[in-house]
């Protein structure tokens, strides 16, 4: 039997993988993908809570749909800016972009 706790554990593991990816990856695209993982961890939470805590209402599921939409919008903008970066620097390693500092 898969309980709420299983879902929550999955979500938190996914969230931590996302954090790990965000911290270790240097490629901007990989960082964005890791961020998607973090969003999806939250989505799993929403769906699970919706199913187990408020089975009558669909609040959590609606929320998840919105989060997916927003994440998509965010990713679009981010990718556009990554392309912009690529045009300037001819690479997308985030650690090579540090003109602005101190």
């Amino acid at each position: 039997m898969i309980t709420l706790n299983h879902y929550l554990a999955l979500a938190s593991i996914l969230f931590c993988i996302g954090i790990y990816g965000v911290l270790t990856r240097r490629n901007a695209i990989s960082v964005l993908m890791s961020i998607e993982l973090m969003f999806n961890a939250a989505n799993i939470n929403f769906i699970a809570f919706s199913k187990f805590i408020t089975p009558v209402f669909l609040t959590g599921q609606v929320f998840a749909v919105f989060v997916i939409t927003i994440a998509a919008a965010e990713a679009t903008v981010a990718l556009a800016i990554v392309i912009l970066i690529y045009r300037h620097h001819k690479e997308i390693n985030v650690d090579k972009i540090n003109f602005l500092k101190w």
């Binding site: 911290l23 270790t24 985030v94 972009i97 540090n98 003109f99 602005l100 500092k101 101190w102």
Partner: peptide
Amino acid sequence: GAVNGIAWIFKKACTGLRQIQTGYLSNYI
């Protein structure tokens, strides 16, 4: 990367608060 970043942070913290702002995205994260 993570260890790398931490090393970075400790190094920079030594040279004054300002140096925290390394300009490296990964450090900010």
